[in-house]
Design a protein around this nucleic acid. Structure first.
Length: 216
DNA sequence: GACCAGGCACATC
DNA sequence: GATGTGCATGGT
C-alpha cells in the first residue's frame, strides 16, 4: 500500500482544483432531499427533480409530508428510481416528524455517533447517504466515501481492492485531522477528480495524481 | 444502442 | 460474509 500521506493528497487536489463549495444546494432540508435523490444518480438529474419540488412549493418538511406519494413520484421523476426514492423520502419524513416534530434542526443536537446511527436505522438511508447528511447538513466530522473515492484510492494502491465502506472511511478519518471543513472539501475534490479523470473507461488519462510520487 | 451516474435493500449461496 | 439483482431517468 502507498504511504503517500492523505494530507498531501488533499493539499495537491486543493491546489489543483480550489474550493468546491459543497454541498451544491442550500439549507438542511434541501441537502437531505438531495442526498437521497443522488443515490446512484447523476447530479444534473437531481437538480431537475429539486427544481420541480421548488416550483411546486413543496421543498419543506411539512409540504413534502403532506404530498400524495404518487404526486411526489411525478415531481422527482427526473432523478430516476422515482418510486423507491419517493418511499425513501417518506421514511425520512416519518423519522423527522415522529422523533423531532418535523424540525429539521433538531437532529443536529445529537452527537455525531448518535445521528449517524439514527440515520442508518431509516430504511433507504445507507452509509454514504447517512454520512453525507451528517457532514453536509449537520457539520458533523464524518468523511463521506463514495464510488469515486473507492475507485481513486483503489487505482492508486492506497487501499485493498476488496476494502469496504467502513474500512475506507476509517482509513481517511484516522489519517487526517478530524476537521469538518477538510472532510467537506476532500470528498468534493475526490468527486471532481473522479468526474474528470477517473472514469471506468478510459482508465486514468491525464490524471493529475500521476505527478505525485507513488512511494515516498 | 451501450454505458454511466455522488446507493440501497433484499435474495441467495 | 460475499455476491447478484432490481430499481429508472437523462447525458455522452
Amino acid at each position: 500500500m502507498s504511504r503517500l500521506p492523505l494530507s498531501e493528497l488533499y493539499e495537491r487536489l486543493y491546489a489543483r482544483f480550489g474550493p468546491q463549495g459543497w454541498w451544491p444546494g442550500q439549507g438542511r432540508f434541501e441537502i437531505i432531499v438531495g442526498a437521497i435523490l443522488t443515490q446512484n444518480t447523476n447530479w444534473g438529474n437531481v437538480e431537475k427533480a429539486i427544481a420541480n419540488l421548488k416550483s411546486a412549493g413543496v421543498l419543506s418538511p411539512n409540504a413534502l409530508f403532506a404530498l400524495e406519494p404518487q404526486r411526489l413520484g411525478e415531481l422527482i421523476r427526473p432523478a430516476g428510481y422515482f418510486n423507491i426514492k419517493a418511499q425513501r423520502l417518506r421514511h425520512v419524513l416519518q423519522w423527522l416528524f415522529e422523533r423531532f416534530d418535523g424540525d429539521v434542526d433538531r437532529p443536529g443536537e445529537l452527537s455525531t455517533y448518535a445521528l449517524r446511527e439514527a440515520l442508518l436505522a431509516v430504511k433507504g438511508i445507507g452509509p454514504e447517504t447517512a454520512d453525507s447528511i451528517c457532514l453536509y447538513a449537520y457539520d458533523k466530522p464524518v468523511f463521506v466515501v463514495d464510488a469515486y473515492t473507492a475507485r481513486i484510492f483503489g487505482r492508486h494502491g492506497m487501499i485493498w481492492p476488496q476494502a469496504g465502506y467502513e474500512e475506507i472511511r476509517e482509513y481517511v478519518e484516522s489519517n487526517l485531522p478530524r476537521d469538518v471543513q477538510m472532510y467537506n472539501e476532500f470528498h468534493a475534490l475526490l468527486v471532481r477528480l473522479g468526474k474528470e479523470y477517473c472514469k471506468p473507461k478510459p482508465l486514468c488519462s491525464g490524471c493529475p495524481l500521476e505527478e505525485l510520487p507513488r512511494e515516498l
